[in-house]
Each structure stands twice: as structure tokens, then as C-alpha cells.
Amino acid sequence: MVSSATSLTGNGLRDWLYQRVSALVLAVYTLFIMGFIMTRSMDYAAWVGLFHHTGVKIFSVLAALSLLVHAWVGVWTILTDYIKMASLRLSLEIVVILALLFYFIWAIIIVWSV
């Protein structure tokens, strides 16, 4: 058993499942948004109208959360593959986590301000 405090869940299977489930959410969300863009005449009113639905808001936040989870598992894997110096790796991990959390909170604020 290899311990790894910085991984998302500390458990290989859970990390792996979270990454797959979040990928699914992102895929469905992307298709949903692309479908909307391609079937509607795109203007400001249509766009605002879409995000007025509470369901769309929740879906958007869920997609942002999935992005956070998905990116963290992926970036953590890349960093533990390639950055061997522990102090540098930890610093990079902190930067990435803070950035991801910042974007996530920002996304919530944007979606709920509509």
C-alpha cells in the first residue's frame, strides 16, 4: 500500500471512479450547451434565458464541480509522474488547487448572478 495524502480521495479506485463520473457529467454538459448553441439563434436574450432556469444553473455548477474534480485527479497524476522534487511538487499542487477552487467559486458566482 502506497500512501498519498495529496490525491483526491487517497484511494485509487475512488479517484478513478470520480474521474470517470466527472468526465461523463462534462461530456453531457458539453453536448447540452453545444446543442443549445446550434439549434437556437444565438443572441444575448436567448443566452440569459437559458441560464434563468434553476435546472441549468444547478447543471452548470455540477459541471464546474466535475471540472474541479476531473482536473485535480489528472493534474495530480501528472505532477506525481514528472515532478520528483517534493517541495516543488507540493508548491505546484497548492497553486493548482487554489486556482481550481478559485475558478469553481467564480463559476458559482457567475451562474447565480444571472
Binding site: M1, V2, S7, G10, N11, G12, D15, W16, T80
Partner: peptide
């Protein structure tokens, strides 16, 4: 299985 469940042993 328990011994292999961490994020590295198998999941790397």
C-alpha cells in the same frame, strides 16, 4: 486487494 487499493499500485 486491500494492499493494491491506493492511487499508485494499480491505478498508475
Amino acid at each position: 486487494l486491500e494492499a493494491l487499493s491506493d492511487p499508485f499500485s494499480v491505478f498508475r
